[in-house]
Design a protein around this nucleic acid. Structure first.
Lengths: 145, 145
DNA sequence: CTATATGCAAAACCTTTGCACGATA
DNA sequence: TATCGTGCAAAGGTTTTGCATATAG
């Protein structure tokens, strides 16, 4: 944990930027959040801890966290973006129920293998990926009967 | 081609809606577009053909085309949605270069297989899916050296 | 001290919607 | 003729940005 924060500090400094309390607040918060989050989630969680951070600062910090490899944008729904912590996370896919909005994470190492192959074949540099599957979950399937 | 249009007409009528020239214009246009498109693309392509269609009508027609299975939303970039024609299309993934914006389509039947397995295991009803991979393409990799 | 970051509020952007008019069945 | 669709412009919601102030180095 301490290392993650030190690493981010170094990342920021290496870019010639300033390491501020707001940037650290956002980092600490995303490390505590489970599952997926959006900007509002972070904002209100921080507000509840008496942080004086603005949404603008969150919006300005997220790209840094993405660039540093801590988080990733995983999907957009109802017009806004959802992120997740990718740090130390295994490759997985998202099953999104369009009826109730529930999101299932499913691990599958074959997916990672498949993507790595394409990366090599096409001579890309892979930065991130995500597989979203939209459907109707078993609960909602029952409810619709 | 003729069948596709007849099918859409039937789809619309079966829903108790009216088959209008605007709806047909949009359908005809998406069948001509190659690769991915967004609302603006369709709008200006149609304008160039002297269509009097409004963006509102395009926005209102796309959900019908999705429901009818003709197109699918494949990714969002820079704040707006991109679609592609899914009709008669094999499963594939998108490799998106974050540097130049180029999008490569890659076919891989294993992906389809993998997804079908998860669908059965989780008892979902699959509607659509997409795999997006973000990275830097070989051209841009060279340019950055 | 200087350069960068913040907070606020306004702007920008895509998308949706209310309403009067027009077209379909 | 009744219902549904369209175009326009305004509204809606998220994200970005300009600017004055605050803070890091």
């Amino acid at each position: 944990m301490k290392n993650l924060i030190e690493d981010f500090k170094n990342f920021i400094k290496k870019k010639g930027l300033k390491y501020t309390s707001e940037r650290e607040e956002v980092l600490r918060e995303i490390l505590e959040v489970e599952d997926h989050f959006d900007v509002d989630t972070l904002y209100f969680r921080l507000k509840n801890k008496n942080s004086k951070i603005s949404k603008a600062s969150i919006y300005r910090t997220l790209p840094l966290l993405i660039e540093a490899g801590y988080i990733q944008e995983v999907y957009k729904q109802a017009g806004h973006s959802y992120y997740e912590v990718t740090f130390n996370k295994l490759p997985h896919l998202h099953f999104i129920c369009i009826s109730c909005g529930r999101v299932d994470e499913v691990m599958d190492p074959r997916l990672n293998q498949l993507i790595k192959e394409h990366e090599q074949e096409k001579n890309y540099k892979l930065l991130s990926y995500h597989l979203e599957i939209f459907g109707i979950c078993s609960n909602c399937k029952e409810a619709l009967k």
